[in-house]
Design a binder for these strands. Structure first.
Lengths: 245, 245
DNA sequence: CAGTGGTCTAGACCACATC
DNA sequence: ATGTGGTCTAGACCACTGG
């Protein structure tokens, strides 16, 4: 039983079972929003005690891969039910503290080839086909964030502006239901820059205004990157919120 | 047994025991860095099974209040052992990916009165005495962050520049060992601004350079705020890192 | 070796949702 | 009443640390 250099040789049972369940979720044995089998059923299937299955599912809940609901069951996490609370990956907030769900306005969808930087971050070869979306996020009808989103062409075949506009819900909900791509984790790097002429026009601010630049790489199962997003955010009346624990 | 409007009437045993242990940690029954009693000992003391104590301690470990070390024991978390890895609350990184522990240079310590905004964020009355520290964080000898730190005077009596300079370690280590104030959680709000003349001088950049403005409110037990920090960060060669999961 | 945290089991019972 | 997740117990055994 070979082991990676830094990995433990033997994994506890609950860890192995967690991995098995993740594989089933990735293989869409149960779709996002659906219930997975009950703990007792999984325990019987894997020939372990309920407590061991519980431990595995607890880990998955901590990773936001599933959601537990007492009395009802355990459900595969989805981005299509985020209308109630704020989207999990949205860190931009209004300064006045009101929790507003921003509107998304798609500007355009273009086809292109991955540049060196995008290829590196998305683990593609330079020149591979990508999709380039531009969109704004509007709070109270005012554009606050300008995003340029780079997607691997191979995963999002058939993505058009019309198709996105026909979908009602968040962008990650769109990716999930229309292309089966699940956004699980993201890593963001923030810098302060000044607006150039183009960005300023789209955000309705003066050229030279300071903007918050957010570079996000989003990953799916196995930490495979599937989205590169460069956002510019006006921070006159909004901010980026982060909780440290 | 009265209950708050939104709180559950009955707490599970492990939750109650967690609270008891937190109280003991807050009361410094065991100091930061010291071991708390073993699970079996705590189980006997509270007349519950080891599993229930385990659950309580697991929760504390998730909150970074204690650190488990297999074979050795469970230890109260401390800010004085962060020299190996990067400080837990430091999000600024070098663009080149090198993990550098920045140097801290204290500029000055002043006494003052809380303004309206500081009073609100620190839950003080306007006009109550505060301490105002200014310091820079230097990466490779170059100032990258300029912090202005506001502390409630009542909690940090006797804090002087000389005393800080005599201490070797992180600022939160200093607060912990010298004043018994434990920084547990923080909430940061980020904006992009342009440097004014004073800040530009201290950060050795031109006036008008875009800077990342970080407002941090740090809390201790019971979510009581104990530090307000306004930081300005040059992001030419550094960035603010955030992981979303 | 003894002591610590880590895993796993089997079973009882509770709390919640649904029919 | 039934099925789900949530709590709690008692006990066995494993893995790691340090004298």
């Amino acid at each position: 039983m070979p082991a990676a250099a830094t990995a433990p040789s033997f994994q506890p049972l609950w860890r192995q079972i967690r991995t098995l369940i993740v594989s089933d979720i990735e293989a869409a044995a149960w779709k996002p929003g659906e219930a997975i089998p009950s703990e007792l059923e999984l325990a019987a299937r894997f020939r372990v005690s309920q407590g061991t299955v519980r431990r595995a599912i607890d880990a998955l809940a901590d990773e936001n891969l599933v959601v537990r609901r007492q009395g009802k069951g355990t459900f595969v996490a989805t981005h299509t039910e985020e209308k109630v609370s704020l989207p999990r990956f949205l860190r931009i907030r209004r300064d006045d503290g009101v929790d507003e769900y921003p509107g998304s306005r798609l500007i355009d969808v273009r086809r292109g080839k991955a540049g060196i930087e995008a290829a590196r971050l998305l683990e593609l070869k330079a020149g591979e086909p990508v999709l380039l979306l531009r969109r704004t996020l509007e709070f109270a009808g005012v554009p606050v964030v300008l995003d340029e989103i780079t997607l691997p062409g191979s995963l999002f075949r058939g993505l058009t502006k019309a198709r996105f506009d026909a979908y009602h819900g968040s962008m990650y909900g769109f990716f999930e239901t229309e292309f089966g791509v699940r956004m699980l984790k993201a890593r963001e790097k923030l810098k302060a820059i000044v607006a150039d002429a183009d960005s300023a026009a789209l955000l309705a601010v003066e050229s030279g205004t300071p903007l918050l630049a957010v570079e996000r790489v989003t990953t799916t199962f196995g930490d495979r990157p599937v989205e590169l997003r460069r956002g510019l955010c006006t921070t006159m009346h909004h901010h980026y919120l982060n909780e440290l624990g």
